[in-house]
Simulated assay, not measured.
Amino acid sequence: MTAHAAANDAGRAPRVFFYVQHLLGIGHLARASRIARALGENGFEVTLVTGGMPVDGFPGPGINHVALPSIAVGDGGFAALVDANGNVVDEAFKADRRDRLLTAYHACQPDVVILEAFPFGRRQVRFELLPLIDAIEKSEPRPLLMTSLRDILQERAKPGRDEETIDLVVRHFDRVLVHGDPAFVRLEDTFPLANQIADRVLYTGLVGAAPADPPAKRYDIVVSAGGGAVGAGLVEAALQASRRLGDIGRWLIITGPNMPQADFERFAAQSAENVELVRFRTDFRSLLTTARLSISQAGYNTVCDILQAGCASVLVPFASGGETEQTARAQRLERLGQAVVVMEEALSAETMASAISRALSAEAEKNVPVLQLDGANRTAEMLRDLLK
């Protein structure tokens, strides 16, 4: 008997065990939280397991949350993992996380397990995810196992990685949930072996949030730097551009909670009277609904919020360390006339000011294609159908 058959027999709400590990930004956590919230609103019992540094406001109220001991990437890049104190994690630390994860899984007794990104990403935590998959395969009843992907994947640099991913999907995963609109981008556009698992791929649409109410205070230009750990260049260029462009309205600059304090204080000292600088706002989506222009990186959740609000946008895709995902997204949006792109290596006061002027001048003539943005609720509908 499968786990979902057992749930139906018992007449209980279907249970979802959802694992997400954010390592640098907060995009993965934000998207998973949106999906978890929608699942709960659609009658699922959700346990969301997180393993990154705590972020205020996430995963949000009403979600059963299991927080594993926190890890993040070290200064040496994604290969090195550190704990909350900045110490490189050792084998004992990994074993403790693995055991906590397995304990949470067995306590949940889920009908569906969703692993965010893995095996297409998050290889750094396979020390705990491979044992979890092994436990799933040994479970009686066995839950459905799915992976949850953003619309655009990071290009693989090492040979054999795509083949390894396909092998894991074919052996263990029932479905691949792609949180994107195939009219914008398809899995095969950024994952060359997608045709080998085409029968398991489901497109949910982009995971936008619920429509937001207008904010109490309106800003013309909203600048956001994601989590903030790598956003200093964007914020500095925006501040310099604000002085060059003169009075084009009120600015709000959101640096992100992870921006170093020294950078935040330096930018605060540079801000003019019409510029407000804050670390974090819980009403970001609301702010965009009345803004003329958004200036941001090109992360998945931020782009969803911009598309939903319909404001003009300047995108500065994060591209350090060989990252390709944001660049691919930004360039596709620019080709659709939905953004002006400034690459990180070309970022300056001049290029930012020029991009802002172009984006605002094109604002009135923008023809926005309709993209599916209700991916969270559609994910719930798809799981419900699969469980039937």
Rank of each mutant, 00 (worst) to 15 (best):
A210S: 13
L287I: 10
Q270R: 15
T289I: 10
F284N: 03
G231I: 00
F267T: 01
L287M: 12
A232C: 06
G233C: 05
S286M: 14
G231L: 02
N274L: 07
L293K: 02
V235H: 03
E276N: 11
I248K: 01
A291I: 11
P257L: 09
Q270M: 15
P214S: 15
S296D: 09
R243E: 02
D199Q: 07
G233L: 02
G256M: 05
I221E: 00
D247C: 00
V235Q: 01
N274F: 07
M259K: 07
D220Y: 07
S286K: 13
A262G: 01
A272Q: 10
P257E: 05
I197M: 08
P215V: 06
E236Q: 12
R218V: 15
E273I: 13
E265D: 12
I248G: 01
G228S: 15
D199T: 05
G208P: 04
V222G: 02
T290P: 02
Y219A: 05
A268Y: 05
S224K: 00
N274E: 08
G205I: 00
A210Y: 09
E265M: 09
A291W: 05
A209I: 04
P214W: 10
A210M: 14
T204G: 06
I295Y: 02
F267V: 06
R292C: 08
A229M: 13
S294Q: 13
K217A: 10
A268D: 10
D263T: 15
A229Y: 11
V222C: 04
G228L: 14
R281N: 10
T290G: 09
T282P: 12
S286P: 13
L288S: 08
A237S: 14
N274P: 03
G226P: 01
Q240S: 12
